[in-house]
Design a protein around this nucleic acid. Sequence first.
DNA 1: TTGTATGCGTTATCAT
DNA 2: ATGATAACGCATACAA
Lengths: 341, 341
Amino acid sequence: MEKQATIKDIARTLKISTSTVSRALRDTHDVKQETRKAVMELAEQLNYQPNQLALHLLKKQTHTIGVIVPNLDFVISTMVKGIDEVALEAGYTVMVCQSNESYGREIVNTKRLMDSLVDGFIVSLSCDTMLVDHIKKIQDKNKPMVLFDRVTSALNAPKVILDNEEAGFLATQHLIEQGYKRIAILSGPKKLELSNNRMEGYLKALKQNNIKVDKDLIVYCDFNQDYAYFATKELLAMKRRPDAIFAIADKMAIGAMLAIKEKKLNMPNDIGLVGMNNDPSTRLVTPTISTVEMPAFELGKTAAKMFIEMMHSDKDMNDEQIVLRPKLIIRESSLKIVGSK
Amino acid sequence: MEKQATIKDIARTLKISTSTVSRALRDTHDVKQETRKAVMELAEQLNYQPNQLALHLLKKQTHTIGVIVPNLDFVISTMVKGIDEVALEAGYTVMVCQSNESYGREIVNTKRLMDSLVDGFIVSLSCDTMLVDHIKKIQDKNKPMVLFDRVTSALNAPKVILDNEEAGFLATQHLIEQGYKRIAILSGPKKLELSNNRMEGYLKALKQNNIKVDKDLIVYCDFNQDYAYFATKELLAMKRRPDAIFAIADKMAIGAMLAIKEKKLNMPNDIGLVGMNNDPSTRLVTPTISTVEMPAFELGKTAAKMFIEMMHSDKDMNDEQIVLRPKLIIRESSLKIVGSK
DNA sequence: TTGTATGCGTTATCAT
DNA sequence: ATGATAACGCATACAA
C-alpha cells in the first residue's frame, strides 16, 4: 500500500536530524530519553523497517550465503536443511542454486551470486565440473568459501566431507563377510573424487581379504538409475557374472535392483546388493536394500558452522577438513541368513 | 585478492568523469568512440563488475524472487526447478526458503526476505499455516506475489494450481470402475484447501455413482508416512473395513501400503490403493502404486511466468488463476484384471 | 560529447 | 545530546 517509511520521514516529521533518528533507533546512550521515545513510537506507527539494501551497500556485506548444489535430491536437500538451520540461527539468509549437474550452469550461478550479492559460498560440485576456475575466483575475491560433500583436491579450501573410503570399505567388507566372492562396484563419474574414494575403500577391503581385483567388475556410471540399470544388465550377462554389487549411490542401487529382478535372480541368495545414502526408497523396495548411511543433516550443519567461523575469524582455514563417519545399514539385499542358501 | 574495481577507479585512471565512464559502459551513443574504447579496455583489464548492491539501492529492485516452500520433497523440488528455469532466463535470481511446514518459520522467512531483499514472492503455504497476515503484508507493500500449489482462498492473489478436485475425482472414479465399493480417503490437514478440494473430487465421484458416503471412511491425516500407516491400521481394523484407499499424497500411500502388507492383504485383490504425485518410489514398490500425477515442473514454470508478467505489467492480476490438469497413472495396486479375483 | 551535482537510505565522523 | 556532512557505487538530469 504505502511506500516504505525511511529514517528521513521520521526525521522530517519530528523535526530532528536523520543522525539522531538513526542513533535513537539503535544506541542506548547519547540520546535523550524523550527523543528516543518519540522516535520509537513514530517508527512503530509508520512500521519502519531499515532498508537492507542501503545497509548492504554501506557495510559491504549482505549476510547472505550462496549455496551451490548439483541438485536437490533427498540427501542433498537434507544437507541444505542442515545448512539452513545453522545459517538462520547465525542471522544469515541462504540462497540455494542448483546447477542441475551442469558445469555451465554452475558457472552462471556462481557468477551471478558473486557480484556483491552474497558474502560467501558453500559449494558442492556438479558431476560435470572439471575445471574449477570459477570457484577459484571466489577465493580470489577473498570471499569465504566452504566445500562440502562433493569436493576436489584441486581446490585449497576448508572442506566437510564423509569418510568415503571408509564407506566403500564398510560396504565391501560386509559383502565379503556374507560370503560373496565376485563383488562388482558401480562407481560414479571418474571426475568426482568422492567416487574414487569410495572405490579405494572397495579395493582396500578386497586386498585385506586377499581377493584379486577383477577389472571387469569395476564399472563407472552416472549417478542415475537408468544408467545403472543398463550397466548391471551387462554385468549380469558376463560369462562369470558377479555375485554381489556395491553401488556407490542408492539411485544406482535401485537401477541395479531392477536389472537383477528382471533377470529373476534372488537377492541376497543369488546376488548381494549394497547401496549408499539411505534413501527412503531403499527401505520400501522388496527386498529392502542394504546401504551406507551418511549423516547428511549433520554434514550440512557442519559446513555452515565452518562457514560462519570462517566469516568471523581471519585465520587461514584452507587446510581444515572435517570428516564425518558413515554407518552401514544391513537389510535384506545382502544378508544371507546362515544356512538359508 | 584485489579489491573490486569501481567506476571511480576507471574514471580516475582515465582522467574523465564517472558519468562518462558509466555511459561508456552502457549506452551506445553520446560517447566518443575513443573514450568508449579506452573505458572498455580498462574495465576489462581491471575485471570491472558493476556493484549490484549499489544498483539495487538505486533502482530499488534486486532482480531476486523469494520462493517460500513448505519443504523440498520430490514434487516440490521439481516445481522449484521449474521456477528456477524461467527465472534464470528472465534474469532473476531465486532465493528458496523452506519453512519446514512450520507457520512460525514461514513468517520469519518472509519477513527476512521482505525487507528490501527481494522484488516479490512465489509462495506455497506450509501445512501449519492458518493465518496469512504475513502474506498479506507482502501485498500491502505492493510486492508482486504469486501463490502456487498450496494456496488459500483467504488470499486474493494470482494462483497457479492443480485441478485438485479433478485429481480426487479421477482417482476415486477409477477405483469405482475397478469394482471397489467401500472406498476410504486419507486426506490431508483440514487447513489445506488442497486437501478439501481433492476430497470434493472424491465425494463427487461417489455421488455420481450413487455410492453413499460413509464418514468413517474419511480420515484426516498429516502429509506423512507414519501417520498414514497408523491411520490405515485403524481403517483395516474396522468391522467393515474399506476395500480401497485413496491417499491424497504418495507419502501417505506408502504408509498405507505398509499397513496393508502387514495385514497380509493383497493389492489389488483384497484392497485397492491409489496415491498422488507420482513419486518415484511408487514405481519401485511391490505392487507398484497407482497415482495421480501432477505436472510439477510445468506448474513451477507457470508460476514463475506469471510472476514475471506481474512484475512487468501494472494491471491487477489478483483474480487470475491458472489450473493445470492432473493425469491418472494406473499401476498394479488398483488394477483388477478382469476375472482375476 | 562530457562534466557537475544530486540522490537512493543508512551510518560514521566531526562539529557544535 | 544533536546536527551537518561525507561516504558506500552507481545512474541521471541538467549544464556546459
